[in-house]
Design a binder for these strands. Structure first.
Lengths: 195, 195
DNA sequence: GCTTGAATGTAACACTCGGTACATTATAAG
DNA sequence: CTTATAATGTACCGAGTGTTACATTCAAGC
């Protein structure tokens, strides 16, 4: 049976995923999950520890979900980048990634306040991408570009909600990259592993 | 002679550009610009109107700076996208763009709170880019991709500060795009105008 | 000098914030 | 039944929030 705290944590994830992490305060958060500020402090110790637990759990789930993606033998012939993109747009993953992107941006201007909530290498796909590029095309520039395309399109979906257009754009990029590297696959599919 | 309010607005821009717009409050802001919360309310009416005025002014300055870029006859042979990129990395432009990107992300999850501070079409380069593509290569997918590359790389610079790597990445993209479109220039230089 | 209006200081208002003290209920184990 | 422990309610603390009331200073115009 799930402990009280575990069920609370579940509701809190749902709440924060809806609402984002900017300007959260205890009492509205407590009301939204059907309890009191008193109880949140009781179960989690402090607001800071509460957020740490919730965000850690979110990042752990993303990590597990990503591992699942990598373990399954790739059924389709689509490019690894496109598979990764489809994974990111799945509802559960998207909602949590959105919060992490927001956190990422907040930390960029106020690292003292928000930096501690970002586990290192969360949302930092750079090394993974670079490691996975074929030696011939391995370069920080290309890896940075790939990550930027992903980030930029994800944010586009966050803002406009237009998944079809963004997905068309990522296909356009994959086509460009294929031509650029003379028909070689842009990235191999293994080893998004160490994200 | 600049009115008191104008000099305050100047300091406020500098303060918010340093600090970002998340979790601002009157008294610390007032202290940072050498006045009191009382005076800020006196001059601007309310905290909300203050932020509106400051952010409007920031966006207006960006708009003017961008117009300057477009008016000057392009001295270099570099791609329009690269010229735009260099413009965005200029210190004054970068600092203000950073705030608008943060605002953009905050509004994506909490439109009710932050949406009103975003003037429509600020940071929305999509139509401009699409209008500027040569008819042969004009497509929502390509325009979306170009915007996403720019956004993603800008955010990368916001987070890591590594301008050289990001600039190399945008050059890589331009090279890819040139090859993709058989040597035609990716975008013409006029008409980033209607941003 | 007097008046007017902008600029400023001091102090407070009602409210929310994160967090705590203290007591009480519920539940389960002995 | 007693006892230990988890869960909850009520009420409050000091600090910070945006905003306002009221008084005062200061500079310019008549």
């Amino acid at each position: 049976m799930p402990t009280r705290k575990a069920t609370l944590l579940e509701s809190l994830i749902a709440y924060l995923v809806r609402r984002g992490v900017a300007d959260v305060s205890l009492r509205p958060m407590a009301a939204a999950v059907g309890t009191s500020a008193r109880l949140l402090i009781f179960h989690f110790g402090s607001k800071e520890r509460l957020l740490l637990e919730v965000l850690d759990e979110m990042q752990a789930r993303l990590q597990r979900s990503l591992s699942d993606l990598l373990r399954e033998p790739s059924l389709t012939r689509s490019a690894p980048l496109r598979q990764f993109w489809d994974w990111a747009l799945k509802d559960a993953n998207f909602a949590q990634l959105r919060v992490l992107y927001q956190l990422h941006i907040l930390a960029a201007q106020d690292h003292k306040t928000y930096g501690r909530f970002l586990k290192r290498n969360s949302l930092n796909w750079l090394e993974s991408v670079e490691a996975v590029l074929k030696p011939l095309q391995r370069s920080p520039a290309l890896a940075t570009l790939i990550v930027a395309v992903f980030d930029g399109l994800f944010i586009e979906v966050m803002s406009s909600g237009d998944r079809r257009r963004a997905s068309a754009a990522i296909d356009e990029f994959i086509a460009m990259a294929r031509k650029h590297t003379h028909g070689r696959r842009l990235v191999r599919k293994r080893a998004w592993a160490r994200s």
